[in-house]
């Protein structure tokens, strides 16, 4: 018990209130996640003011439950870690404010964590990290390729120029009448359909690692609207499959380009959209065929969405790297690496 390192972590960047206790950076003692999805489904997407109000309803309940489930007390803890960006400012503020109060009350070090670093560390629960490492982060808010040359040293190689991949799923989901968030349903339909529409693969051949999904989205919407005007019914399964194939082709080709230019030992696949089965299968196949010496670390399905366990795993490493903040920590909605 003596060398037990325990991090209490907070994550409230969007519509999940989550608090976790992580032991030695790789073991989940508790990971409480209260989701507001049922609330925001009423509005077809996350309403920031509503999200912030839900976080404050949940925060201390989740805190107590995280400690009780982990069977630890405050004096067992080494530090408090908290997501301070990127995300919705009103949501981030609840976690940041609560984490500061806890750190102050018990005189604990406070460790600020970038939400995207957190997503990468969801894969830490699968295996140890080896460097250099590459990460493909795909979520509702972000699409990024990150190069990690050494521990906790992040460099964004490429990112989306417009919509995030998850955002594109939600937007075309709306056109197909799929409830927010649409990713899971579109993924399931895609497996039952075929890529018959051949939507554009934006920037696929460009000599960079950036993404763009707005052209695909427009092309998709135009196709559906034109068919409606002709009173023609399109196969939704084929639409879903064609859309998903375009997204996956772009994500996979850019990742391949990055892997070819930056040799790494591991590729981490993480973020909400990393739960997409089509994407997981494709990346796995690509690595086997073209980069067989690169180990693929896929974040566990349960930890692809937002959660505090990943923040705690990143928190332990950041803590070891002496990352600290004082009581003036603020939310930084546009935080980048």
């Amino acid at each position: 018990m003596e060398n037990r390192k325990l991090i209490l972590s907070f994550e409230t960047s969007c519509d999940e209130t989550s608090i976790a206790v992580i032991e030695n950076g790789d073991t989940i003692l508790s990971n409480i996640v209260a989701t507001q999805i049922d609330s925001h489904q009423r509005f077809g997407g996350v309403v920031p003011e509503v999200a912030s109000r839900h976080h404050i309803e949940q925060i201390t309940h989740c805190l107590n439950e995280a400690l009780e489930t982990a069977k630890v007390d405050y004096n067992d803890l080494s530090a408090v870690a908290v997501t301070y960006g990127p995300g919705l400012v009103g949501s981030l503020l609840i976690g940041v404010t609560a984490a500061k109060a806890v750190a102050f009350a018990h005189d604990l070090p406070l460790v600020p964590i970038n939400h995207m670093a957190g997503h990468i560390y969801a894969a830490r629960f699968v295996d140890q990290f080896k460097y250099p490492q590459m990460a493909l982060l795909v979520s509702g808010g972000h699409t990024e390729i990150v190069y990690i040359e050494s521990e906790y040293d992040f460099k964004v190689l490429g990112e989306t120029r417009d919509d995030a991949a998850g955002e594109a799923y939600d937007k075309i989901g709306r056109v197909l009448g799929v409830n927010y968030p649409a990713g899971k349903t579109i993924d399931e339909w895609a497996h039952e359909g075929h890529d018959t529409f051949n939507f554009p693969r934006a920037m696929e051949k460009d000599d960079n690692y950036d993404f763009s999904f707005s052209g695909l989205k427009s092309s998709f919407i135009n196709t559906v609207h034109n068919a409606e005007q002709r009173e023609e019914k399109l196969d939704t399964k084929d639409l879903a499959a064609s859309f998903q194939q375009s997204v996956i082709d772009v994500l996979a080709s850019k990742t391949e380009r990055a892997l070819a230019d930056y040799p790494v030992k591991q590729l981490v696949l993480a973020g909400g959209v990393a739960a997409n089965q089509g994407l997981r299968d494709r990346i796995e196949k690509d690595l086997n065929q073209k980069f067989s010496n690169v180990q693929l670390l896929m974040a566990p399905l349960k930890l692809c969405g937002d959660n505090a366990a990943m923040i705690g795993a990143a928190g332990q490493v950041a803590f070891d790297h002496k990352k600290r903040t004082d009581m003036s920590l603020n939310a930084v909605p546009g935080l980048s690496f």
Binding site: I59, Y74, L93, A98, A101
Partner: peptide
């Protein structure tokens, strides 16, 4: 102000709960 009130209430309820 919604944000102002939330910062005070979050701080207060977290301090009270944790202490």
């Amino acid at each position: 102000s919604y944000t102002g009130v939330r910062i005070a209430v979050t701080t207060a309820k977290t301090l009270a709960s944790t202490l």
